[in-house]
Design a binder for these strands. Structure first.
Lengths: 193, 193
DNA sequence: CCGGTTTGTAAGCACCTGCTTACAACGCTA
DNA sequence: TAGCGTTGTAAGCAGGTGCTTACAAACCGG
């Protein structure tokens, strides 16, 4: 709820931005399916017809939201810090002005629309590609997928299902437990049997 | 030739079972939200009004489906094999007569209804409790949650988003890569800093 | 055969969904 | 100031949702 409903009288750019912000929040909180265009318009303080005028459809808006900030963190974080940085972002409560919440949206929108699928592929591919640079082992891609899977699983258990003690655990403790295990995964040769 | 639809003429028990089977399949395939009561009734070859007569509501049916077979694997698998067994179940394509698909449903129904939340808590709690017996370290519960998170994350990336190379990887390879990392997670003392 | 109960069916209700349309209010500019 | 494109609004549409109701057909004990 941006409290400037009266302040913005005739400003298409601001309305578009408000719709995008509201959509980003709601998609991250509820996923694609359980977010309605009426909810988005209401939170943005705009008429829902404008959503369709500016973005065409709900799916198209979803795509714009994902494209806008989905990969920002990825581009500004060195690979060797990506795992820990992403993990901490996922673990900390969403602050204003924090990186965009693409992984959360990824989680909450599993099994949703076609737009969701395309987004899944893109976001997952990008993260895994960077993570794969962290190991010289032959199965680099697969190992990277497993790291990504862990990130997503932690986000799932923590922010979606709220399972304790994980949900309330100190991010430092989680990082301390996980780091050596990830190191094992990335560095150890696969051994037969 | 009498068609199979007439074969079950007046048999409430069989109709209930058919509805349960259909619901279990569809919830696992699409999650709670994207499964409609009309779909369930259609796959079961039954009238949708019967679904409400026998189960009261869609949410209630969901609860019955989860309660029916959700924890079967948990009760018949020794703790030290639980991780690998569950992982392999998650990795293999669903066969007929295979264990119930509670974790898949868990995944696909994230962020769904209240019934989904209750189920999430129950299933997650049971798995984590058993997994926690695998370590003597102080943070046993937290470590168990992290193992569970990895399981769910792998299921998510593999069966929901279909990301390659994980989606098509040999289960043996995945197990070989993951086992030492899980061992590290469970056995290693948390070290400060 | 009769009456009541159980099982199955078709139709519909009230609500929600994404999306569209018709129109009013505004502000630029000629 | 008159005209006109732009921005915002209210109302509604077509289809889908969970769920209910009214009723017919089958079964069973008497």
């Amino acid at each position: 709820m941006t409290g400037e409903q009266q302040a913005r009288k005739r400003d298409a750019a601001a309305t578009k931005a408000a719709l995008l912000d509201a959509a980003e929040e709601l998609f991250a909180e509820r996923g694609f399916d359980r977010t309605t265009v009426r909810d988005i318009a209401k939170r943005a303080g705009a008429n829902q017809a404008l959503l369709f005028r500016y973005f065409g459809s709900k799916e198209s808006l979803f795509g714009v939201v994902m494209a806008r900030g989905g990969l920002a963190q990825l581009e500004t974080t060195p690979p060797e810090q990506l795992f820990e940085t992403t993990l901490r972002t996922l673990l900390e409560p969403p602050r204003d002005g924090s990186p965009h919440r693409s992984l959360e949206t990824y989680l909450r929108s599993t099994g949703s629309s076609g737009a969701g699928t395309a987004m899944h592929e893109q976001v997952g591919e990008e993260y895994a590609r960077v993570l794969a640079t962290l190991t010289d082992q032959p199965d680099a891609q697969l190992r990277a997928d497993l790291v990504l899977a862990w990130l997503l699983g932690i986000g799932l258990v923590r922010s979606v299902t709220g399972k304790e003690p994980l949900a309330s655990a100190d991010p430092d403790d989680i990082v301390r437990l996980i780091r050596p295990a990830v190191q094992t995964l990335l560095e150890r040769n696969g051994q037969p049997g």
